[in-house]
Nucleic acid binder design. Structure first.
Lengths: 147, 147
DNA sequence: TTCTTACATTATAATCGTTATAATTAGTGT
DNA sequence: ACACTAATTATAACGATTATAATGTAAGAA
Protein backbone atom coordinates (compact mmCIF):
# COMPACT_ATOMS: atom_id res chain seq x y z
CA UNK A 1 0.00 0.00 0.00
CA UNK A 2 2.74 2.48 0.85
CA UNK A 3 4.53 1.30 -2.28
CA UNK A 4 1.50 2.46 -4.22
CA UNK A 5 1.70 5.83 -2.52
CA UNK A 6 5.34 6.18 -3.36
CA UNK A 7 4.78 5.19 -6.96
CA UNK A 8 1.89 7.62 -7.28
CA UNK A 9 3.92 10.38 -5.71
CA UNK A 10 6.83 9.81 -8.06
CA UNK A 11 4.42 9.81 -11.00
CA UNK A 12 2.91 13.08 -9.87
CA UNK A 13 6.33 14.65 -9.62
CA UNK A 14 7.49 13.40 -13.00
CA UNK A 15 4.34 14.63 -14.65
CA UNK A 16 5.09 18.16 -13.47
CA UNK A 17 8.63 17.99 -14.77
CA UNK A 18 10.34 17.47 -11.45
CA UNK A 19 13.34 15.18 -11.50
CA UNK A 20 13.45 12.16 -9.24
CA UNK A 21 16.74 12.33 -7.40
CA UNK A 22 17.91 9.80 -4.83
CA UNK A 23 17.39 12.40 -2.10
CA UNK A 24 13.84 13.11 -3.17
CA UNK A 25 13.09 9.43 -3.39
CA UNK A 26 14.44 8.86 0.10
CA UNK A 27 12.62 11.81 1.64
CA UNK A 28 9.31 10.71 0.17
CA UNK A 29 9.86 7.14 1.20
CA UNK A 30 10.70 8.17 4.73
CA UNK A 31 7.64 10.38 4.99
CA UNK A 32 5.32 7.71 3.67
CA UNK A 33 6.54 5.15 6.16
CA UNK A 34 6.69 7.56 9.04
CA UNK A 35 3.68 7.94 11.29
CA UNK A 36 5.34 10.58 13.45
CA UNK A 37 4.74 13.70 11.33
CA UNK A 38 8.42 14.55 11.23
CA UNK A 39 10.08 17.94 11.22
CA UNK A 40 12.56 18.88 8.52
CA UNK A 41 15.31 18.13 10.96
CA UNK A 42 13.87 14.72 11.80
CA UNK A 43 14.03 13.85 8.13
CA UNK A 44 17.52 15.24 7.80
CA UNK A 45 18.82 13.20 10.71
CA UNK A 46 17.05 10.05 9.63
CA UNK A 47 18.69 10.21 6.23
CA UNK A 48 22.18 11.41 7.10
CA UNK A 49 23.31 7.81 7.47
CA UNK A 50 22.48 7.01 3.89
CA UNK A 51 23.29 10.51 2.56
CA UNK A 52 26.20 11.77 4.64
CA UNK A 53 26.63 14.81 2.40
CA UNK A 54 23.03 15.83 2.20
CA UNK A 55 22.31 19.39 3.23
CA UNK A 56 19.41 20.54 5.39
CA UNK A 57 18.60 22.95 2.60
CA UNK A 58 17.87 19.99 0.37
CA UNK A 59 15.28 18.76 2.81
CA UNK A 60 13.62 22.15 3.03
CA UNK A 61 13.78 22.70 -0.71
CA UNK A 62 12.20 19.39 -1.47
CA UNK A 63 9.54 19.68 1.17
CA UNK A 64 8.56 22.88 -0.58
CA UNK A 65 8.57 21.11 -3.92
CA UNK A 66 6.39 18.35 -2.51
CA UNK A 67 4.10 20.88 -0.90
CA UNK A 68 3.43 22.74 -4.11
CA UNK A 69 2.85 19.42 -5.83
CA UNK A 70 0.22 18.69 -3.20
CA UNK A 71 2.02 15.63 -1.91
CA UNK A 72 2.80 16.99 1.51
CA UNK A 73 1.13 19.27 4.02
CA UNK A 74 2.84 21.53 6.49
CA UNK A 75 1.56 21.62 10.04
CA UNK A 76 2.49 24.60 12.19
CA UNK A 77 1.97 25.26 15.84
CA UNK A 78 2.87 28.13 18.06
CA UNK A 79 6.12 26.67 19.25
CA UNK A 80 9.13 25.13 17.58
CA UNK A 81 9.28 23.96 14.00
CA UNK A 82 6.88 22.86 11.31
CA UNK A 83 5.89 19.26 10.90
CA UNK A 84 5.20 17.64 7.58
CA UNK A 85 2.56 15.15 6.70
CA UNK A 86 2.35 13.01 3.59
CA UNK A 87 -1.07 13.55 2.09
CA UNK A 88 -3.09 10.39 1.70
CA UNK A 89 -6.81 10.45 2.27
CA UNK A 90 -8.85 12.85 4.37
CA UNK A 91 -7.90 12.82 7.99
CA UNK A 92 -7.49 15.29 10.80
CA UNK A 93 -4.97 15.49 13.60
CA UNK A 94 -5.39 14.97 17.30
CA UNK A 95 -2.53 16.60 19.15
CA UNK A 96 -1.28 16.08 22.68
CA UNK A 97 -0.54 19.36 24.42
CA UNK A 98 1.77 17.55 26.80
CA UNK A 99 4.14 15.50 24.65
CA UNK A 100 3.33 16.87 21.19
CA UNK A 101 2.30 13.52 19.76
CA UNK A 102 0.11 13.74 16.67
CA UNK A 103 -2.40 11.02 15.93
CA UNK A 104 -4.39 10.73 12.72
CA UNK A 105 -8.14 10.77 13.02
CA UNK A 106 -10.17 9.74 10.03
CA UNK A 107 -13.40 11.62 9.57
CA UNK A 108 -15.41 12.71 6.54
CA UNK A 109 -14.68 16.24 5.31
CA UNK A 110 -16.72 19.05 6.76
CA UNK A 111 -18.30 20.04 3.49
CA UNK A 112 -21.32 21.79 4.99
CA UNK A 113 -19.08 24.00 7.09
CA UNK A 114 -17.07 24.93 4.00
CA UNK A 115 -20.23 25.77 2.10
CA UNK A 116 -21.63 27.90 4.87
CA UNK A 117 -18.35 29.72 5.34
CA UNK A 118 -18.20 30.44 1.64
CA UNK A 119 -21.75 31.77 1.68
CA UNK A 120 -21.24 33.96 4.73
CA UNK A 121 -17.86 35.43 3.87
CA UNK A 122 -17.98 35.50 0.08
CA UNK A 123 -14.72 33.55 -0.08
CA UNK A 124 -14.08 30.98 -2.71
CA UNK A 125 -13.26 28.14 -0.32
CA UNK A 126 -10.60 25.61 -1.25
CA UNK A 127 -9.94 23.46 1.80
CA UNK A 128 -9.93 23.48 5.56
CA UNK A 129 -7.81 22.36 8.43
CA UNK A 130 -9.10 20.90 11.67
CA UNK A 131 -7.02 20.05 14.67
CA UNK A 132 -8.14 18.63 17.96
CA UNK A 133 -6.10 19.31 21.06
CA UNK A 134 -5.99 17.47 24.34
CA UNK A 135 -3.96 14.99 26.34
CA UNK A 136 -3.04 11.52 25.18
CA UNK A 137 -3.56 8.41 27.29
CA UNK A 138 0.08 8.10 28.34
CA UNK A 139 0.28 11.72 29.46
CA UNK A 140 -3.07 11.55 31.26
CA UNK A 141 -1.73 8.55 33.13
CA UNK A 142 1.50 10.31 34.00
CA UNK A 143 -0.18 13.38 35.47
CA UNK A 144 -2.61 11.21 37.40
CA UNK A 145 0.32 9.37 38.99
CA UNK A 146 2.24 12.57 39.66
CA UNK A 147 -0.55 14.12 41.68
CA UNK B 1 -19.35 45.74 24.46
CA UNK B 2 -15.61 45.83 23.93
CA UNK B 3 -15.39 47.78 27.19
CA UNK B 4 -16.98 44.77 28.85
CA UNK B 5 -14.40 42.50 27.27
CA UNK B 6 -11.59 44.70 28.46
CA UNK B 7 -12.99 44.87 31.96
CA UNK B 8 -13.45 41.09 32.06
CA UNK B 9 -9.95 40.54 30.76
CA UNK B 10 -8.44 42.82 33.37
CA UNK B 11 -10.45 41.06 36.07
CA UNK B 12 -9.23 37.69 34.86
CA UNK B 13 -5.65 38.86 34.99
CA UNK B 14 -5.96 40.41 38.43
CA UNK B 15 -7.58 37.28 39.80
CA UNK B 16 -4.53 35.25 38.79
CA UNK B 17 -2.17 37.72 40.43
CA UNK B 18 -0.98 39.44 37.26
CA UNK B 19 -0.37 43.15 37.56
CA UNK B 20 -2.17 45.54 35.24
CA UNK B 21 0.51 47.74 33.75
CA UNK B 22 -0.14 50.52 31.26
CA UNK B 23 1.49 48.43 28.55
CA UNK B 24 -0.69 45.43 29.28
CA UNK B 25 -3.77 47.59 29.34
CA UNK B 26 -2.86 49.12 26.00
CA UNK B 27 -2.03 45.79 24.33
CA UNK B 28 -5.30 44.26 25.44
CA UNK B 29 -7.27 47.32 24.40
CA UNK B 30 -5.64 47.31 20.99
CA UNK B 31 -6.31 43.61 20.49
CA UNK B 32 -9.95 43.91 21.48
CA UNK B 33 -10.60 46.76 19.08
CA UNK B 34 -8.59 45.22 16.28
CA UNK B 35 -10.30 43.02 13.75
CA UNK B 36 -7.10 42.33 11.84
CA UNK B 37 -5.57 39.53 13.94
CA UNK B 38 -2.35 41.43 14.46
CA UNK B 39 1.17 40.08 14.71
CA UNK B 40 3.36 40.96 17.67
CA UNK B 41 5.08 43.51 15.49
CA UNK B 42 1.76 45.06 14.44
CA UNK B 43 0.96 45.60 18.08
CA UNK B 44 4.40 46.96 18.79
CA UNK B 45 4.20 49.48 15.97
CA UNK B 46 0.67 50.51 16.79
CA UNK B 47 1.67 51.34 20.35
CA UNK B 48 5.09 52.90 19.86
CA UNK B 49 3.47 56.32 19.51
CA UNK B 50 2.01 56.13 22.99
CA UNK B 51 4.87 54.06 24.45
CA UNK B 52 8.03 55.23 22.71
CA UNK B 53 10.22 53.21 25.04
CA UNK B 54 8.29 49.98 24.92
CA UNK B 55 10.30 46.94 23.90
CA UNK B 56 9.18 44.24 21.49
CA UNK B 57 10.01 41.78 24.22
CA UNK B 58 7.27 43.33 26.32
CA UNK B 59 4.75 42.60 23.61
CA UNK B 60 5.89 39.00 23.31
CA UNK B 61 6.07 38.53 27.06
CA UNK B 62 2.58 39.81 27.59
CA UNK B 63 1.08 37.92 24.71
CA UNK B 64 2.41 34.82 26.42
CA UNK B 65 0.90 35.95 29.71
CA UNK B 66 -2.44 36.56 28.02
CA UNK B 67 -2.25 33.23 26.25
CA UNK B 68 -1.73 31.26 29.42
CA UNK B 69 -4.58 33.18 31.00
CA UNK B 70 -6.75 32.04 28.10
CA UNK B 71 -7.43 35.59 26.91
CA UNK B 72 -5.63 35.31 23.62
CA UNK B 73 -5.07 32.65 20.99
CA UNK B 74 -2.07 32.28 18.77
CA UNK B 75 -2.61 31.52 15.11
CA UNK B 76 0.29 30.09 13.14
CA UNK B 77 0.71 29.40 9.48
CA UNK B 78 3.54 28.04 7.45
CA UNK B 79 4.98 31.37 6.54
CA UNK B 80 5.92 34.52 8.44
CA UNK B 81 4.95 35.28 11.99
CA UNK B 82 2.21 34.33 14.41
CA UNK B 83 -0.99 36.25 14.63
CA UNK B 84 -2.89 36.79 17.82
CA UNK B 85 -6.59 36.77 18.39
CA UNK B 86 -8.46 38.02 21.41
CA UNK B 87 -10.74 35.22 22.56
CA UNK B 88 -14.39 36.15 22.66
CA UNK B 89 -17.05 33.64 21.72
CA UNK B 90 -16.71 30.60 19.52
CA UNK B 91 -15.70 31.40 16.01
CA UNK B 92 -13.46 30.01 13.33
CA UNK B 93 -11.24 31.69 10.80
CA UNK B 94 -11.54 31.92 7.06
CA UNK B 95 -8.18 32.77 5.54
CA UNK B 96 -7.29 34.14 2.13
CA UNK B 97 -4.35 32.32 0.58
CA UNK B 98 -3.69 35.31 -1.63
CA UNK B 99 -3.56 38.33 0.68
CA UNK B 100 -3.56 36.63 4.07
CA UNK B 101 -6.72 38.33 5.29
CA UNK B 102 -8.46 36.54 8.16
CA UNK B 103 -12.21 36.79 8.56
CA UNK B 104 -14.15 35.52 11.55
CA UNK B 105 -16.80 32.93 10.89
CA UNK B 106 -19.29 32.18 13.62
CA UNK B 107 -20.37 28.59 13.84
CA UNK B 108 -21.38 26.31 16.69
CA UNK B 109 -18.57 24.19 18.11
CA UNK B 110 -17.96 20.78 16.57
CA UNK B 111 -18.76 18.87 19.72
CA UNK B 112 -19.58 15.58 18.00
CA UNK B 113 -16.26 15.59 16.21
CA UNK B 114 -14.46 16.18 19.50
CA UNK B 115 -16.35 13.33 21.14
CA UNK B 116 -15.63 10.92 18.32
CA UNK B 117 -11.98 11.87 18.24
CA UNK B 118 -11.76 11.31 21.97
CA UNK B 119 -13.41 7.93 21.64
CA UNK B 120 -11.24 6.77 18.76
CA UNK B 121 -7.88 7.99 19.99
CA UNK B 122 -8.29 7.72 23.73
CA UNK B 123 -7.27 11.34 24.14
CA UNK B 124 -8.84 13.57 26.73
CA UNK B 125 -9.92 16.28 24.30
CA UNK B 126 -9.81 19.91 25.38
CA UNK B 127 -10.52 22.04 22.34
CA UNK B 128 -10.13 22.18 18.60
CA UNK B 129 -9.11 24.54 15.90
CA UNK B 130 -10.72 24.84 12.50
CA UNK B 131 -9.49 27.01 9.69
CA UNK B 132 -10.96 27.39 6.25
CA UNK B 133 -8.74 28.43 3.38
CA UNK B 134 -9.60 29.97 0.07
CA UNK B 135 -9.63 33.25 -1.81
CA UNK B 136 -11.45 36.37 -0.69
CA UNK B 137 -13.73 38.38 -2.94
CA UNK B 138 -11.21 41.12 -3.66
CA UNK B 139 -8.50 38.66 -4.61
CA UNK B 140 -10.86 36.58 -6.75
CA UNK B 141 -11.75 39.80 -8.59
CA UNK B 142 -8.12 40.76 -9.06
CA UNK B 143 -7.08 37.44 -10.54
CA UNK B 144 -10.12 37.45 -12.84
CA UNK B 145 -9.10 40.87 -14.18
CA UNK B 146 -5.45 39.89 -14.46
CA UNK B 147 -6.17 36.98 -16.74
C1' DT C 1 6.56 57.74 54.45
C1' DT C 2 10.30 54.92 53.64
C1' DC C 3 12.13 50.30 53.08
C1' DT C 4 11.85 45.98 51.03
C1' DT C 5 10.70 42.66 47.87
C1' DA C 6 8.86 40.86 43.86
C1' DC C 7 7.38 41.58 39.47
C1' DA C 8 7.65 44.33 34.76
C1' DT C 9 9.97 46.54 31.45
C1' DT C 10 13.77 47.76 28.72
C1' DA C 11 17.74 47.10 25.71
C1' DT C 12 20.34 43.99 23.70
C1' DA C 13 22.37 39.66 22.68
C1' DA C 14 21.54 35.00 21.51
C1' DT C 15 18.98 31.25 19.46
C1' DC C 16 16.89 28.63 16.14
C1' DG C 17 14.24 27.51 12.14
C1' DT C 18 14.23 28.64 7.55
C1' DT C 19 15.70 30.80 3.19
C1' DA C 20 18.99 32.83 -0.11
C1' DT C 21 23.42 32.65 -2.51
C1' DA C 22 27.11 30.94 -5.08
C1' DA C 23 29.67 27.10 -6.46
C1' DT C 24 29.65 22.37 -7.68
C1' DT C 25 27.54 18.20 -9.24
C1' DA C 26 24.51 15.36 -11.77
C1' DG C 27 20.77 14.25 -15.23
C1' DT C 28 18.74 14.72 -19.82
C1' DG C 29 18.57 15.42 -24.67
C1' DT C 30 21.14 16.14 -28.84
C1' DA D 1 30.79 13.29 -25.55
C1' DC D 2 28.71 18.07 -25.19
C1' DA D 3 25.81 21.47 -23.71
C1' DC D 4 22.09 22.80 -20.92
C1' DT D 5 19.29 22.84 -17.13
C1' DA D 6 18.05 21.54 -12.70
C1' DA D 7 19.48 19.78 -8.04
C1' DT D 8 22.52 19.62 -4.38
C1' DT D 9 25.81 21.31 -1.27
C1' DA D 10 28.01 24.46 2.00
C1' DT D 11 27.54 28.43 4.05
C1' DA D 12 25.92 32.92 4.99
C1' DA D 13 21.99 35.70 5.97
C1' DC D 14 17.53 36.56 7.72
C1' DG D 15 13.77 37.18 10.74
C1' DA D 16 10.89 35.86 14.44
C1' DT D 17 11.14 34.79 19.01
C1' DT D 18 13.38 34.11 23.52
C1' DA D 19 16.87 34.73 27.12
C1' DT D 20 19.71 37.80 29.90
C1' DA D 21 21.01 41.41 32.76
C1' DA D 22 20.07 45.89 34.30
C1' DT D 23 16.79 49.24 35.52
C1' DG D 24 12.37 50.73 36.86
C1' DT D 25 7.96 50.42 39.25
C1' DA D 26 4.16 48.95 42.13
C1' DA D 27 2.38 47.04 46.75
C1' DG D 28 2.85 45.81 51.48
C1' DA D 29 5.19 46.04 56.02
C1' DA D 30 7.39 48.65 59.40
Amino acid sequence: MSEVHLKDALETLKSTGVRITPQRHAILEFMIHSTAHPTADDIYRALEKTFPNMSVATVYNNLRVFKSAGLVKELTYGDSSSRFDFVTNDHYHVICNDCGKIVDFHYPGLDEVEQLASHVTGFQVDYHRLEIYGTCQQCSGKSAQAQ
